[in-house]
Computed example of a mutant assay.
Amino acid sequence: MAAQLPEFPRLVFTVLEPISLLAGFFPAVLLPDWFIGEQLPSAASTTSAAVTANSRVVAQQLGNCYGLAFLVAIAVLYSTNEIRVVRNYLIALWIADIGHMAITYLALGHDRAVHVGAWNPMTWGNIGATMFLFLTRTSYLLGCFGPDRSQLELEKKKNKTK
Rank of each mutant, 00 (worst) to 15 (best):
L11P: 02
G143S: 02
G109L: 01
V85G: 03
L90Q: 06
I103D: 02
P9H: 14
T46A: 00
T46S: 03
A23T: 14
K162S: 07
V12P: 06
Y105M: 06
L77N: 06
V116L: 08
N81Q: 14
K162Y: 14
A44M: 05
A59T: 10
E17L: 10
I98T: 12
L142Y: 12
P121W: 15
G128A: 06
E17Q: 15
V51Y: 05
G117V: 03
V12F: 13
A69G: 04
L154S: 02
K157G: 00
I36K: 00
S42V: 12
N120T: 11
P147W: 14
R112E: 10
I127C: 00
T161P: 01
G146S: 07
E155T: 09
G99Q: 05
S150Q: 11
G146L: 13
T14I: 09
A73D: 07
A102C: 06
L133A: 03
D148A: 08
K157S: 07
M131G: 02
L16E: 05
A113I: 03
F25E: 01
D97W: 15
L40Q: 00
F132N: 08
A43K: 04
K160C: 05
W94N: 05
S20L: 10
Q4K: 15
P121M: 10
N54P: 01
A118P: 03
M122F: 13
Q60S: 07
N88Q: 14
A129P: 01
L11I: 12
L141F: 11
A107F: 09
N126E: 08
E38C: 02
